[in-house]
Amino acid sequence: MTSDVFRIGGDLEVRRLGFGAMHLPADPGPGRENALAVARRAVELGVTLIDTAYMYGGGGNEELLAEALHPYPKDLLVTTKIGLERSGPAGEWELDGRPEMLRGQVDNALRRLRVERIELLQLHRIDPKTPLADQVGALRELREAGKIGRIGLSEVTVDELRQAQRVAPIASVQNRYNLLDREHEPVLAACEEDGIAFLPWRTVAWGKSGADAEVAAVAAELDATPTQIALAWLLGHSPVMLPIPGTARIAHLEENVAAAGIELSEAQRERLDGLAERAA
C-alpha cells in the first residue's frame, strides 16, 4: 500500500489527493458564496494541497482562496502558477516568461494570497520566446530572496525538465495525465527517478472515464463511482502522483476526497492499466 502523503521538495508534507481550484467562480453573487464554501469544505475534509493560478480569473481565484481560508491552516499548501499575461485588444492570455514579468507576477500573487512567501510556485508554461534558463533563473533568484520556497513547472517534456534542473532544483511538475491519457508517462518516470511531485491535471478525462465499460465494471465491483476509480488508479500508479481534481460542487468534492480510501486489487489494476492503449 502506498503512502497517502508526499514531501514536496523532500520536506513539505501534503496529503497526496489535493484540490484544483480552477472551477471556483470568483465573481460576486451566489456562485462566489458557494465557491467559498467549497474551498472551506476541502480543508475540513483534510485536503492540504490546493492548486490555483494567476490565469484563473486574472488573480480572482487566488483572492477567493485567501478570503475563504486566510489565515491558512499550518499544514495547508496553496500553490499558484505564473507565466501568462493578458495582451491585445481582447485581453487574450499569452505566454510571457520574461524575468521582469515573472518577478512582478510573484509580487502580485503574494499580495492576493496574503502571504510573505509562496511555498510552491509553478511556471504555468514555458515561454518559447524567452530562454528557459532565464525563466527558471528568475524563479531561482526569487527563491533565494525568500519570496518562494520551491519551484515547479507545468506542461513540460523530459528534456525541458532536465534543462530546468541544471538551473535550479525542481520540486514539482504539473502535466495533463489520467487513466485514459498517458502521453506524459516519460515525464512521470523522470519525476519518479528524482523524487519530484507529479501533479496531474484533467485527472478524470473530463468524464470520459465514466463511459468506459471496464471502468464502470470496476466501479460497480467496489461500490464506487467511475470518477473515484480514476482517482484511485492515479494514486496507486505512482508514489509521486498528487492528483488535483477540481469541482465547484461540495457533493462532487466529497466524492473525490473519498477516492483516497479506495483500494484496487491487483487484478482490477491490471484491467485498468490496459485502457490507455485502447483509448489512443
Rank of each mutant, 00 (worst) to 15 (best):
T52P: 10
R140G: 03
L24P: 12
D75V: 01
F19W: 13
G57M: 10
E144Y: 04
H23V: 12
E94P: 00
L121M: 15
G149L: 14
G104E: 15
G59K: 13
D11V: 05
E94M: 07
G83S: 06
L69N: 09
A21H: 11
D107G: 00
I126D: 04
L65I: 14
V43G: 12
Y72Q: 05
L121W: 05
R140L: 15
L77G: 10
T48M: 09
G58M: 12
A133P: 00
L102Y: 05
R114C: 03
V38M: 13
V38F: 09
G57K: 08
S87A: 15
Y72P: 08
R117A: 07
L12E: 09
T48L: 07
E44L: 03
L123T: 01
A90T: 14
G149H: 13
V106L: 15
Y72D: 09
Q122D: 03
F19E: 13
V78S: 08
L45I: 05
Y56M: 06
I118L: 15
M55I: 14
G58Q: 10
Y56E: 11
K74N: 04
L76P: 02
W93K: 06
E67P: 05
L153F: 05
L65M: 10
F19A: 10
L123H: 02
E67Y: 04
E44C: 03
A66G: 14
G146F: 06
D75I: 01
A53K: 11
L123S: 02
T80S: 07
G18C: 10
K147M: 11
G58K: 13
K147C: 02
Y72A: 12
D96T: 00
L95D: 00
R103G: 02
A145C: 04
D27M: 14
T80Q: 11
G104Y: 01
G58E: 06
V106S: 00
I82W: 11
S87T: 15
R86G: 02
R40M: 09
E13P: 00
P128I: 06
Q122L: 13
G97A: 08
L113P: 02
P99N: 12
F19K: 14
G97Q: 07
L77N: 06
K74M: 01
G58H: 06
A37R: 15
P28T: 09
L84H: 13
M22A: 15
R32P: 09
G83M: 05
P25T: 12
G29P: 11
V38A: 09
R16E: 09
T79I: 08
D107I: 00
F19C: 10
Y56K: 07
R98C: 03
P89A: 15
G91D: 06
G97C: 03
A66M: 06
R41D: 07
R15G: 14
I118A: 06
R41C: 08
I50E: 12
G97Y: 01
E155T: 14
G46N: 11
V14L: 11
E33Q: 15
R111Y: 00
R15Q: 09
A26M: 08
V14I: 15
A39V: 12
I151S: 04
L110F: 03
R40N: 10
P128H: 05
R15A: 05
R140Q: 12
R103F: 04
